[in-house]
């Protein structure tokens, strides 16, 4: 659950975005700049968080009234192994170290719903974080790292579910991969009959949510999910509908058991009562158009 420190929402004097070259980072920076917000967009070419001097460099850039949005992470497509896990931890260590002295006005850490074990339980912010893999464990560890150096009233953690975004490079199973498959091969390949249900959040909704957290100076924990889960088959059909020449949906023998994930997003409704999520069908259509398809 989030709590707000800012009764009259307004963007901070400056937002520092760490990981500004990624899909989410680019979209967030563009959104904030469109509102004429002061933004310091930092990518690995500005600060390589794996370098020894990274913490000092970041510390020198941060002002006490900045809001820092931490998006930088090596995603699973860069590696799911222990070495990648350790590199991600070192990046987290650098950020935590930079924040350890003085810090800044607010820190927003974008984590993952991969911290939750897959199972039939309805996911809320109270669900136990019991990461089943190194990627989830890395994010959970980084959450704890930041919580150890940032006072609770200044730290907001958003655990994002799968992000629906144009030009996604991660290739995760879901709408983004289905669209690429359809474009490249005219086919969408599903495991089994695509029975699994998952939530997803549209990129613009995620950046809107981060913007709201910035404006309200919110702190606490929030799952970034739409509250509506569809089966992969339903998602595949929505993706297929976007193509003039309908791709074939191919079912393949299932190798993994069917799992589901649903969210209770009451905490989001309570924190931001007027926030509206884009319907999945609309989001899929918008992403399709954004890719010029």
């Amino acid at each position: 659950m989030l709590e707000h420190r800012n009764p009259n929402p307004a963007l901070p004097k400056r937002v520092v975005v760490l990981g500004a070259r990624g899909i989410i980072g680019k979209a967030l920076v563009a959104r904030l700049k469109a509102e004429s917000a002061a933004v310091l967009a930092l990518s690995s070419s500005d600060i390589d968080l794996l370098e020894e001097a990274a913490a000092e460099r970041l510390r020198s850039l941060l002002r006490v009234d900045d809001a820092l949005v931490v998006l930088a992470a090596l995603t699973p497509d860069k590696g799911r192994d222990i070495a990648t896990f350790m590199r991600n931890l070192r990046m987290g260590e650098a950020v935590a170290s930079a924040l350890g002295e003085g810090g800044c006005g607010q820190v927003i850490y974008l984590s993952t719903d991969g911290v939750y074990r897959m199972g039939p339980q309805l996911i809320t912010e109270a669900a136990p974080a019991d990461p089943p893999d190194l990627y989830g464990a890395m994010h959970k560890a980084r959450e704890v790292m930041l919580a150890s150096v940032v006072e609770p009233a200044r730290l907001a953690i958003l655990r994002a579910t799968m992000v629906l975004a144009p030009n996604d490079t991660h290739g995760s199973y879901g709408a983004n991969r289905f669209r690429r498959q359809a474009r490249e091969s005219g086919k969408i390949t599903l495991s089994g009959r695509g029975e699994e249900t998952r939530d997803q959040i549209y990129l613009d909704d995620l950046t809107s949510l981060i913007r709201s957290v910035l404006a309200h100076r919110s702190h606490g924990l929030l799952n970034a999910a739409s509250g509506v889960s569809l089966s992969f088959l339903e998602v595949a059909r929505l993706v297929a509908e976007q193509f003039a020449e309908r791709p074939e949906i191919v079912f393949t023998p299932r190798t993994m058991p069917v799992t589901h994930r649903h969210y209770d997003i009451t905490a989001t409704r309570r924190a931001f009562p007027t926030f509206r999520f884009t319907a999945h069908a609309d989001a899929i259509a918008r992403v399709h158009r954004a890719e010029g398809l």
Partner: peptide, 12 residues
């Protein structure tokens, strides 16, 4: 936990 979930049925 179930009580917390159902409490907000009307809000949802």
């Amino acid at each position: 936990a179930n009580s917390r979930h159902r409490r907000y049925w009307a809000l949802r």
